[in-house]
Design a protein around this nucleic acid. Sequence first.
DNA 1: ATGAAAGCGCTAACAA
DNA 2: TTGTTAGCGCTTTCAT
Lengths: 339, 339
Amino acid sequence: MAERVTSVQVAQKAGVSQAAVSRVFTPGASVSEKTALKVRKVAKELGYRPNSLARAMVSGKSRIIGLVVAYLDNYFYPDAVERLSNKLQERGYHVLVFMASQTAGNIDDVMEEILDYQVDGIVVASVAMSSEITKRCQSAGVPVILFNRDQDDIAISSVTSDNYSGGRALADVLVADEHEKIAYIAGWEGASTQRDRELGFRDGLSAHNRTVFARGVGNFRSDQAKDTARVLFDVAPNKRPDAVFVANDHMAFMVMDVLRFELGLSVPNDVAVVGFDDVPPAAWLSYNLTTVRQRANVMVQKTVDTLLSQIENPSTFCPTQIKLDSPLIIRGTTRNLNR
Amino acid sequence: MAERVTSVQVAQKAGVSQAAVSRVFTPGASVSEKTALKVRKVAKELGYRPNSLARAMVSGKSRIIGLVVAYLDNYFYPDAVERLSNKLQERGYHVLVFMASQTAGNIDDVMEEILDYQVDGIVVASVAMSSEITKRCQSAGVPVILFNRDQDDIAISSVTSDNYSGGRALADVLVADEHEKIAYIAGWEGASTQRDRELGFRDGLSAHNRTVFARGVGNFRSDQAKDTARVLFDVAPNKRPDAVFVANDHMAFMVMDVLRFELGLSVPNDVAVVGFDDVPPAAWLSYNLTTVRQRANVMVQKTVDTLLSQIENPSTFCPTQIKLDSPLIIRGTTRNLNR
DNA sequence: ATGAAAGCGCTAACAA
DNA sequence: TTGTTAGCGCTTTCAT
C-alpha cells in the first residue's frame, strides 16, 4: 500500500518549489510553460493529484454541495438526483448525500452535519426546514436552495413548479369531462406542494361552481394511498366518486390498481384519475396517466444555476423564488370528451 | 455573515487549551467531566462544531464513501442508494456521489476524482472497472466494493445476487408452464448480471432439452427493450414466442406494454413474461410480474458491513465475493399451471 | 515567474 | 488529565 503522493515530492523530483507545483494545478495561476510541462510530467510519473480536502481547507471552497433528500421511492426524486449530480459534476462540484428519513434523526441535525463538511451550498429536496437552521446556514455563509418545496420565507431561494396552476388545470379537465362527484386524495399536509395543488384544484372547481365531493389523505405514501382509495371507492355506486385527483403520480398508480384490480372498476369510464409530476411510469401504457408535468430537467438546471451563482458571486446575489410552469399532459385516464 | 467558529475560540473563552476542546469532541479521548461540561457549554453558546474536513486531513479518515453509479432510471438503484446512504449514515459515514454516465467522461476519470477527495472507501454500482484503476485504489489504500456487479478479479470484493440460479429458476418456471417457443431479451452484454442470468437461463432450458427460440438485446434500456419486443413479437403467430425472459424488470414492463397495448396480446395467455430484480413496480397490480428478487436490503447491508470492516480493520481483511440467494417470486405474468 | 513562509482547523504524540 | 508542539497537504501573500 503505497503512500499518497504529495506536491512536495513532485516538487523535489521536478526541482522546483512546492508552490510551483500548486500553481501548475491551479487554473489561472501564473506559471511558465516550461515549469508546467516539467511538473506535469513528474506528476504523471508519480501519479500525483492534488488533495481536494487540503485544497478545500485552505481555500475555503470544498466544491461539495450537500443534498438533503427524504424519500427516493417517489420516482420524481431519483430522476432529479441523477440530473442534479450530473449537472453539478459538469461544473466541478460533487454531491454529498444526506438522507433525512425517519431513522436519521431530525432534519436540523442533518443540516448541522452538512455544515461540518464545509459544503459550498446546500440543496434541500422534499423537506421543510426550520427557520433557525436557515439562519444558521446564512450566518455560516452557506447558500441554501429548496428544491420542489416552497417556504414563506422570502430570504430563501427555491425552485418549484406552479403547483397551483397545475391543480387548477386538472380541475378544468375533470369538469370539462362532465364529472359530478370529484374526489381529492391529498399528499402530506406539511408539504407546500400538497397545499398548493389542493388550493389550485379547489379554486378551479369553485370557478365552475363545484366542490370536492370526497377527500382522503395519502401522505404521498403508496400504502396509505391504497387504503384511502379503498375507503373512498369501496362504497355504494351512488356514493362513489366518478373522478379523483391524486396529489402525485406515485400515489395515483396505487389508486388505479385498487380501482381496476380490487374493485373491478374501469378507468376512465367508471372513474377518471389524474395525478401530478409526470414521472416515467405515468407514460407507461399500463397507466397512461393524465397528469401535470414537473419539468425536472428545467427545475434542476435552475437549481444549479441559482445555487452556483450565489456561491460564485455572493455579493450580487439576492434570493429568488423560481416557479416554473407545469404543462398539463392529457393521457388515457381521463375521458377527454371535447378533444 | 459570521465567521466559522474554531476550536481556538472555544478554548479561549472556556479557558482551556485548544487540544482540550478537540478531545471533548473526540469520542474516547480522555477528558475530565468538568472540562467537558465547560467546553460543551461554551461550544453551544458559540455554535461551534468541529470541521470535518480539517479532521479528515489530519486523521487521514474522511468518513466519506464514494459512490459510483450510472443509471438511476432502473428503480433498483435509487432504492439501493437510499438504503446505502441510510445505513452508512447510521455508522457515521456519508456518501459522495459520482455519476458515471455518458456526459461525465469515462469511469476511470471519475474514480480518480473520487480518490482526490480522500474517501475512506468506494462503492461501485452497476459499472465495470478497469483493472488499472482497481490497482490504483489498492495502492492508495482505499477499499473498493462492487455492488451488483461481479468481476473475475479475485482481489476485489463484490456483492451480487445469484443471477445464475435466478436465471435457471425462471427457465424451470417457463418449461413447467409448457411453453414451446421461449425467447430471451438480453441486457447490456458487458454486465456480469446479464451474462450470468442468460447463462443460468440457457442451462436451465438445456436441462429440459430446450433452447432459446429467439433472442434480442435491450441493453437494460427501456426504449431499446420496446424496439426489441416489436421485432420479436410483431410476426406471424406461428413464429411468435409464447414466453420471454427479459433480463430485468425495468425492460420487462416495457415489453409487457408493447405486447398488451401495441400488439393486443394477452399476458400471460398469449405470451408469458418473466423479469429479474423485483423492483417495486413489479408488485404493482398492473404488471404483477413474475420475477426473481434481488434482496436489495440484504445486498446493501452486506456491502456496508464488508466495506466498513475493510476500512476499520485493514490488516485482517481479505476480499470477499458475496453471492446472495435470489428467491423466485411467482406472480401473474406466468400461467403457473401446476400450482 | 518563482521561492520562502505563513497558515487553514484540526488530531496526535509527547511532556508535565 | 492537560497543555505544548508538530504537522496533515495545500493555497496564498510577499519578496525576489
